[in-house]
Design a protein around this nucleic acid. Structure first.
Lengths: 130, 130
DNA sequence: CTTGACCTTCCAGTGACTGGAAGCCCTATA
DNA sequence: TATAGGGCTTCCAGTCACTGGAAGGTCAAG
């Protein structure tokens, strides 16, 4: 399978797949013409990566997850720990963003948004008392 | 005022302040010894930047906001439009993260997390049917 | 006069790609 | 058989917003 076909199936741009090879996440063999010849196993790895990335795992965590996936003797506790840590990160990010959203949305509501210069948003950014 | 004093007051690391100067967000004059001599106005700009960044505005948006802040003839509509766009971005991000959180949390709950290899998390990442 | 805490500049690295240039390879059609 | 197009390759550079570190000048205290 050539790269664009794999890209389509895994939902990852060819550029990204080449990048994944560069950092050692996949290692497809080459045809005599130098083209990457993806096997089914490469394809599956890339699909795995695509889904792990979609869940927000970092590349390094994806690397670990892939290794655990391939390790028949893994302990599910290791996988779970990784996922739980990541879940915490996500929850923290959500909390941060919600605070931003709340502040920002109340400022936007308070702003007339007309052609006059008076603006609570700028006022708030200019004064310490948020 | 020297850089570390400003850093403390504005809540921005000295390195970041130097970076902000490099990209033209502030332009403190220099003492004869080459040290940056921050004026009150520089200090206020940096405090403004600190708060705008805390609300998640990009550097380029901060630049625009700063310009609007300094422009006595601005229209509050411009500020509000910027803020509303940013608010939308934040809300979209929250939605994405919430979806990740929900998927991940259900996977974590389904995983025994013991020393056996059987793991719904890896199973889910390995199969298309999420 | 030395110590240590400042300050300066410059260079490089982060994460995870992404864009673009230059050039080979393959297939189909005129 | 020439050529046009697409796809493939590599390599270099840029993104965003810093951050770390090295090498060296400056300042105040003891």
């Amino acid at each position: 399978m050539n790269i664009s076909e794999v890209a389509k199936r895994a939902g990852i741009p060819p550029k990204t797949i080449r990048y994944y090879e560069e950092i050692g996440l996949v290692a497809p063999p080459r045809d005599t013409n130098g083209y990457r010849a993806f096997r089914d196993s490469d394809m599956h790895k890339l699909a795995f990566l695509s889904r792990a990335r979609a869940l927000g795992f970092t590349i390094e965590n994806c690397r670990t997850l892939l290794a655990l996936w391939e390790d028949q003797d893994r302990a599910s506790a290791d996988v779970r720990a990784l996922a739980r840590d990541h879940l915490k990160d996500i929850e923290a990010k959500i909390t941060d963003l919600e605070e931003m959203r709340d502040t920002l949305s109340s400022l936007v509501k308070a702003c007339a948004g007309d052609d006059r210069p008076d603006c609570p948003i700028l006022k708030s950014l200019g004064n310490a008392k948020l």
